[in-house]
Write a protein that binds this DNA or RNA. Sequence first.
RNA 1: GGGCCGUUAGCUCAGUAGGCAGAGCACCUGGUUUUUAACCCGGUGGCCGCAGGUUCGAAUCCUGCACGGCCCA
Length: 482
Amino acid sequence: MPSPQSAGFEVRLEKLAKLREQGIMPYGYRFERTHRAAEVQEWFTELTGKEVRVAGRLMTRRRHGKTQFAHIQDDSGRVQLYLRQDTLGPEPYERLELLDIGDFLGVRGEVFKTRTGEVTVNVLEWVLLAKSLRPLPEKFHGLRDVEARYRQRYLDIMVNPDSRRVFLLRSRIIGLIRRFLDARGFIEVETPVLQPIYGGAAARPFQTFYNVLEQEMFLRISDELYLKRLIVGGIERVYEIGKDFRNEGLDRFHNPEFTQIELYQAYADYSDMMALVEELFRFLALELYGTTEIEFAGRRIDFAKPWHRLRFIEALKERLGVDPLELSDSMLVKVAAGKGIEVQPGTSRAKLLDKLFSDLIQEKLIEPTFVIDHPKETTPLAKPHRLDPRLVERFEPVVCGMEVGNAFSELNDPIEQRQRFEDAVRRNEEFATLDEDYCLALEYGMPPTGGLGLGIDRLVMLFTDQNSIRDVILFPQLKKEK
RNA sequence: GGGCCGUUAGCUCAGUAGGCAGAGCACCUGGUUUUUAACCCGGUGGCCGCAGGUUCGAAUCCUGCACGGCCCA
């Protein structure tokens, strides 16, 4: 972190003082703009010779004695300014010496095209809107240092256009998802982030204390059990986009605080959810890029075609040479070890199966694929498979080896649901809970329901070709600097 | 938790037989009335991540720590 004494700071403070001496307010209140930077370029034909008012941050500057060129940047892009002593007058021109790269300016001027063809504003009048006291990162290379890009994200998006692009796309993607679901009659809701009992996934929660209720609480690890209560209540198509929190690992694909969309549709099953995913991904690609193809990590992925279906058990059976469903827990551990996959003693069968699949198969699934029909014990909230009671009706959408979601035909038999919760708790599975209130809700009756969760961060990674989840999260947590 | 890599000026980076700490950009002085990574002259700027150790001498070698990245668990 730069110190107060660092280069440029003192000099800029002096300029600030001089400006005040000259009666200039270095921090303005407002500025009426007629155009944004990009609009001046875009509408050049109509604007040429006309007066415009634009504002932005001073990003470049080339001085030539009695004239100078500069660029200001606003959120649409940049526009060049041309500043002449004979146009501005001696004092306002001289006062330009008190400006620095990084300052915010508002200008009034005439639009023209320079000899080299760049659309430019010939400035008639300028005002300082905010003085910058810190030197900006280098104009050509931008801000490269990964740690600095995360810790000072404002600098990253200020000077690295690609970073800005990612976050603008993130916003568009979320907007498009809403548009897609709203058009299909889904209702967006908000459910509690602070929950008295966590559930809907197997993950270590963050804990906190709710003073006025004098009660331990958890930050949600999933929205599932609340959204399904709403299905019970008669909201037939419902979704929520929000943060979930899992007090666990942090790597390229995982961030403890992440954004998920969960949606539930009454009278539907997991096949309907597969169709929805196929449509949604095609829609996103078309809206964002005008084609069904995207590029991720150097590969072209086409969402025009239906996704592959890969049965969880059959894929594992082929890879392991034996049917994992027919193996005892201890045999399964041995077979896993034979494939180089070691787990801590006491790891649940569900976790082991999951790990086997992730390590041996999932990372090779490049083409869009639904991994379907998982073993029952992996998924206590999914409905038994209609053709094979050892399995559940579940799928995980996988693209480029990356799991981007999870979906089921939702379990709506309250007796079986309670049994499945109790089994998981009895097997002492990590983070298994029994949500009595949810069981009560199910006892009132829940229609057949298809449910789907999608990791928004990973979705954004996929659609913006980013390698790390931290590159699609504006302010990823880092350790405190000491 | 383990392995590897990184940390040098505001930014981007050089810097090994261990011997005065470097460049470009930015900044400051001067010049320049159509430039655009403007240009020309001159200049300022360093806890070389932190703490120890080895050595006549350490950015450089060794140990530990901090922060970050990648890979593994």
